[in-house]
Amino acid sequence: MPPSFAGRWTPFWLSLPMLLIVALFFYIPVYLSFWWSFTLERPFGGGSEFVGFQNYARVLSDPIFWDAAWRTLVFMVFGSTLAIIVPLILALAADRMVPLSHTARNVLIWPKGIAGASIGVVFAFIFNPFVGIMAPLNGLFPGLWNPGSDGTDAFIMLLIAHVWNGIPFNFVILLAGLQAVPRSLTQAAAIDGASPWRRIRDVQLPMIAPQLFLTFVLEFTESVVSAFALIDTMTQGGPGGATRLLVYKIYQDGFKGYDLSGAATQSAILMVFVLCLAAFQFLYLEKKVRYER
């Protein structure tokens, strides 16, 4: 038993400020989201009444909700996969300790200091079909690229910005994992005649499985949530709802349309989805990860 200080209630008093903040700004809002999903809330404090599952019936029968949910899922799958594969490739390269590694390890972390909304503003400009980098190509092939009218273009633009902003964290975690792989292991594999590709597949990737697992766990939630800043600054959900993910729809419904109950219901659904995702990852995926070093 490690030595410790006496005092039955001292830790409680020390944690009290944090507990109060968490209660007031985490648990009560989460509770309210679920409570409101069963009531009809009027905006501007106009009172509320209990309506049972009516909000859910209304939300779930709305094709726009399913459209947004589907796009959220697509963005989650493509966004988080790309946002891990790109930093993984870069981390594998940086781990080789070539002359560029030193610069790369500094510069690849820079996006951490740039807000999603800021890089959204910048990418919206760079990919502007008339004045951006695609303008010359658009001149040669009219209509080739226009995220303002083509939903696929807008979605691709969103994915690129998401990957750009997600590089630092995933790169640092994966590189730290790679550098902890004993050199003797990769050397032994090399002596046995394993090609670099074989070594990545059979030695390095299994060894950094815990880091890959962690980045996937965090990246799934991150891609559902952090897309808001990019959408709001790049596409506002358009064109024609092509980039309207749930997190953006909730904002539109709650703060532009004053449909508080609808927004709270969709928040509750999204929360349950994120919680299920986390539970699924911990229960099933974690078992498949080899932790031994």
């Binding site: 009560i28 809002p29 989201s33 409101w36 949530v225 703060f255 928040s267 994120v274």
Partner: peptide, 19 residues
């Protein structure tokens, strides 16, 4: 306290705004 890491602020803005 750790329960908080599961649901980021951006997911609970509607009711946080009310609080």
């Amino acid at each position: 306290l750790m329960g908080t890491v599961l649901l980021p602020l951006d997911l609970r803005v509607v009711t946080t705004y009310q609080v």
